[in-house]
């Protein structure tokens, strides 16, 4: 399941070198994958081959186990959410009609579309009563992109393709949209392919990053691995030097905790959870003068321990 690229090549007729040069990748279902690389390295081309806006020159792509060429193109696309840079909304349609595009193509009954529209707008924190009847140009850039995300998720696709969706949005709004998207992805477990040339955005959002250079994948790894073990000088330069403190931001409790409940560590009332990042845990250790914390699940039941030693050992790797 997920998305599998096998020896994928894209050769445009008017260029010498292929834009995508024999790429093979396996992406798991529910992963947040970021394609990162300088402009012109082939990110968009690779992305658009997934919903067949471009056809592969050779090689195969499978989405959830199905070769995309075995499905009717329109049908394939209706099952894959697609978000482009701002301006992707249709200006002649209201917000609700924009969101309803794919459900209408899929001939959903109107009541179901109506209910889904409210649900989606609430999901992206836009009040349905205020925004349903508005036109895109009556919304700010950030709000438009929220609608863009809601629209892409309208028919509940497993896979979302996003091509620099926040590229034209100011830094503060972008950061809140990133948080929002991250939250939704954790909640809904969509497989997301997200293109960007912004390193910080990639490090912030990705479960794994595909770093591309001249049509090839030069590294496919977690943000932490990319920062700590860049595959070549190009990537080292790209991600720059990141200090230890920032590195902790790319690691979560689940990456280092031990499943034992050491007795000497008091099961403090406010333990940490698996998804807390280590920067936060480290801050608490310093502020609260504890060398360890209990790890608790969502029911506040203790499932393990995280210690200062384990953090330091991981960072030293």
């Amino acid at each position: 399941m997920g998305i599998v690229f096998k020896n994928v090549v894209k050769q445009y007729s008017n260029t010498a070198a292929p834009a995508v040069d024999n790429i093979s990748l396996e992406i798991n279902s529910g992963e947040f994958i970021v394609f990162l690389g300088p402009s012109g390295c082939g990110k968009t081309t690779l992305l658009k081959m997934v919903n067949r806006l471009y056809d592969t020159t050779s090689g195969t792509i499978e989405v959830d186990g199905v070769d995309i060429r075995k499905v009717q193109t329109e049908q394939l696309r209706r099952g894959i959410g697609y978000v482009i840079q701002q301006n992707g909304l249709f200006p002649h349609m209201t917000i609700e009609s924009n969101i309803a595009v794919v459900p209408r193509l899929l001939k959903w009954p109107e009541e179901k579309i109506d209910k889904r529209t409210d649900e989606l707008l609430e999901m992206v924190h836009l009040d349905p009563r205020t925004y349903r009847k508005r036109r895109p140009n009556q919304l700010s850039g950030g709000q438009q992109q929220r609608v863009g995300i809601a629209r892409a998720m309208a028919a509940d696709p497993n896979v979302l393709l996003m091509d620099e969706p926040f590229g034209a949005i100011d830094a503060i709004t972008r950061s809140s949209l990133q948080d929002e998207l991250h939250r939704l992805q954790r909640l809904l477990k969509k497989t997301i392919l997200f293109v960007t040339h912004d390193v910080d955005e990639a490090l912030r959002l990705a479960d794994r990053i595909i770093v591309m250079q001249a049509g090839k994948v030069v590294q496919f790894a977690t943000p932490y691995d990319i920062v700590t073990n860049p595959a070549n000088d190009f990537i080292r330069k790209l991600v720059g030097e990141r200090d230890v403190y920032r590195k902790m931001g790319f690691l979560k409790v689940e990456d280092i905790y031990s499943a034992d409940s050491l007795d000497e560590v008091a099961a403090t009332a406010d333990g940490v959870t698996l998804t807390d990042d280590l920067k936060l845990v480290f801050n608490r250790m310093v502020e609260e003068q504890h060398k360890a914390f209990a790890v608790v699940d969502s029911n506040n039941k203790r499932i393990g321990t995280v210690t200062m030693d384990r953090i330091l050992t991981k960072l030293a790797q």
Binding site: N51, E74, R78, Y82, I84, G88, P91, L105
Partner: peptide
């Protein structure tokens, strides 16, 4: 970009003409 968005969402050529191009 409008046409690309419409295509990417799975509209047929005909649907793109009547739902996007004509109204715009």
């Amino acid at each position: 970009m409008m046409i690309e968005a419409a295509k990417g969402m799975g509209m047929s050529k005909r649907q793109i003409v009547f739902r996007i191009e004509v109204p715009l």
